[in-house]
Amino acid sequence: MSSHSNHNADIHDEVNYDPTVWVPHTHSHGTKDIWLKFWILLGLTVIDVAFYFVMPPSMARNIIFIALGIVKAIYIVGTFMHMKHEKLGFASMIIIPMMFIIFFIAWMLFEGNFWGTI
């Protein structure tokens, strides 16, 4: 693994920490995982399209699509956005509020069923 090209030691210094320039040391995790996740995302999209044409529209089919969407989101955030290599506290800070979004969407989908009927 090639070392980071570093002309300025201060940017990584944790003792004389300067938040305006400080960046952590980075290292590559290779490209194998990236391409694996590409094929997985492509496969999930193909599964989406297959369900779309094979299964007639229903709430069960909608749930399958949403579940596959969440699986795709996990791979994009985890691998492409590097989240699985971040510290747990940092990942939690971003991911936990996103749980409210999933809850809110599901809630409003059911709520919309009653509009105009009462």
């Binding site: 090209s5 795709k72 994009i76 956005m81």
Partner: peptide, 29 residues
């Protein structure tokens, strides 16, 4: 970035770009 000693700007803009992809997953759905 060569002069700066790190390529973190690529990563930061990359995060934005992946987010656009992430949103598309749900627009598509």
């Amino acid at each position: 970035y060569e002069k700066r000693g790190h390529y973190e700007m690529v990563e930061k803009v990359g995060l934005y770009w992946h987010f656009v992809d992430l949103v598309w997953v749900f627009v598509f759905t």
